[in-house]
């Protein structure tokens, strides 16, 4: 991984670093985006892993119900919270640079 020097002249192809901007005029919204973005990150991770377990057939019907219900409610709750701060679900994807967008 390349050192975090944003002034370097010729970064390696993967060395771009993103910025999460916290603006004085909209502190609440920007902070909410940071926190809710991290929560959304973890929620998606759990959902995708649950799907993988479904595919593997390693869950009992009760586990499927509990897991599904919890993930469904977590998604609803997160989207509700985001809406309170005027954020769309799409605003919650944090762009962490090298692993993020490609173009």
């Amino acid at each position: 991984m390349t050192a975090p020097d944003p002034t370097q002249d010729w970064p390696s192809p993967l060395a771009e670093i993103s910025r999460l901007k916290i603006d004085p005029e909209r502190v609440e919204q920007d902070m909410a985006r940071l926190v809710l973005g991290l929560m959304e990150f973890l929620r998606k991770l759990m959902e995708l892993q649950a799907v993988r377990r479904m595919d593997a057939g390693s869950l009992t019907p009760e586990e499927e119900e509990r897991l599904g219900l919890t993930l469904m409610r977590a998604e609803e709750a997160l989207h509700r919270l985001a809406a309170q701060f005027g954020l769309q679900p799409g605003d919650l994807s944090l762009d962490l640079g090298p692993l993020g967008r490609s173009v």
Partner: peptide, 17 residues
């Protein structure tokens, strides 16, 4: 919206498939 957690999870699994 799905009525049960199982249905919700199955719908997501189908999407991915």
């Amino acid at each position: 919206p799905s009525s049960s957690g199982r249905d919700w999870l199955r719908e997501r699994t189908l999407q991915h498939a």
